[in-house]
């Protein structure tokens, strides 16, 4: 069966699904092309998203989202897919709130690095609200699982907005990472900080930094690591937005005295072509010890539906 026929059938099925969806459901379907300049390889793909949100009653909010994307290389030999599901709920307790979320990332057909998989993670957070200029604390229990290990941890921290243009979040966390095969347990302690600032009415930037110490019986894991990432967004009108995000990652394995450093910078432009048709062009440059340079360019278009 030709690819164009498959795409037409998928679109037909999706359009039928859309008409059957509840009124509070929104989403998009789209196509994209990805070109890896470093490897001189390309692929085309489809992606889609469904989003449902409602107030169950004035004190409880429910949100469910499902998104997926599939790609095939230009020789039509290798395929990959990625699915993301999320269900979260917020319970309003006077001025405070209790948030619970379950997320799962998976793949049906797998990709070049792995076969099919499903990695769930979960989060329960209690947020105390003292006032919009006050220091508002939170505590959360979160966890995640992969084929190799399961992580459980507690995080405490606070959010403070000293002025409307600036807010920051500080958190400390402790996690336990248990490996299924070996039965080994790593203990992690982290400190993270996020700063958000508005720049006039058309721009904003967010900077995120974290520092983690991991103790482990495995010398390829024990060490300290950190992330420093920044995101700058500028949107002069509803029709155009430019997004630049540089990031740096570092790790020092104490038992091996080994440094691993990598970095990347991504540039993305989103365009609203009509109120329901979007286009985007993104490129990223990654630098690491394994691959000195990895440059990719993605171009795509999405058709959205919702309440217009």
């Amino acid at each position: 069966m030709r690819l164009s026929t498959i795409i037409v059938i998928i679109c037909f099925i999706l359009s039928g699904m859309v008409s059957a969806l509840p009124a509070q459901t929104t989403g998009f379907v789209g196509i994209q092309g990805i070109y890896d300049i470093t490897d001189d390889t390309g692929s085309i793909g489809m992606r889609g998203n469904l989003d449902y949100r409602t107030l169950i009653d004035p004190d409880m909010y429910l949100h469910a989202a499902f998104s997926g994307e599939g790609e095939i290389d230009l020789n039509f030999t290798n395929t990959s897919d990625r699915l993301l599901m999320q269900v979260d709920s917020t319970w309003f307790l006077a001025d405070d709130e209790l948030y619970a979320a379950v997320t799962a990332e998976g793949s049906i057909g797998g990709n070049e690095d792995s076969s099919s998989y499903l990695f769930p993670d979960w989060d329960i957070t209690y947020r105390k609200f003292f006032g919009y200029r006050a220091i508002n604390p939170f505590v959360s229990y979160r966890g995640s699982s992969t084929q190799e290990s399961i992580v459980n941890g507690i995080k405490v921290g606070f959010i403070h907005a000293p002025k409307v243009e600036l807010s920051y979040t500080v958190g400390i966390s402790g996690d336990v990472d248990t490996y299924f095969a070996s039965g080994e347990t790593d203990v992690l302690a982290s400190l993270d900080l996020q700063l958000s600032q508005l720049i006039g009415l058309k721009g904003n930037w967010i900077t995120y930094g974290s520092f983690t110490y991991r103790t482990s019986q495995d010398n390829t894991r024990e060490g300290i690591s950190g992330v420093l990432r920044s995101e700058f967004t500028y949107a002069p009108t509803r029709r155009l937005q430019v997004h630049v995000s540089p990031a740096g990652y570092w790790e020092y394995l104490t038992q091996l005295s080994q440094w691993n450093i990598s970095g990347e910078i991504a540039l993305r432009t989103d365009i609203e072509m009509t109120p329901w048709l979007f286009g985007y062009l993104s490129s990223s440059i990654a630098v690491s010890a394994d691959a000195l340079w990895d440059v990719t360019v993605t171009i795509g278009s999405d058709i959205a539906w919702g309440s217009w």
Partner: peptide, 17 residues
């Protein structure tokens, strides 16, 4: 509130939605 619309544009959520 303007940042919500900026985020919507990033995630291809229509302005009306």
């Amino acid at each position: 509130v303007i940042t919500l619309f900026q985020e919507a544009l990033s995630r291809h959520i229509p302005v009306s939605e």
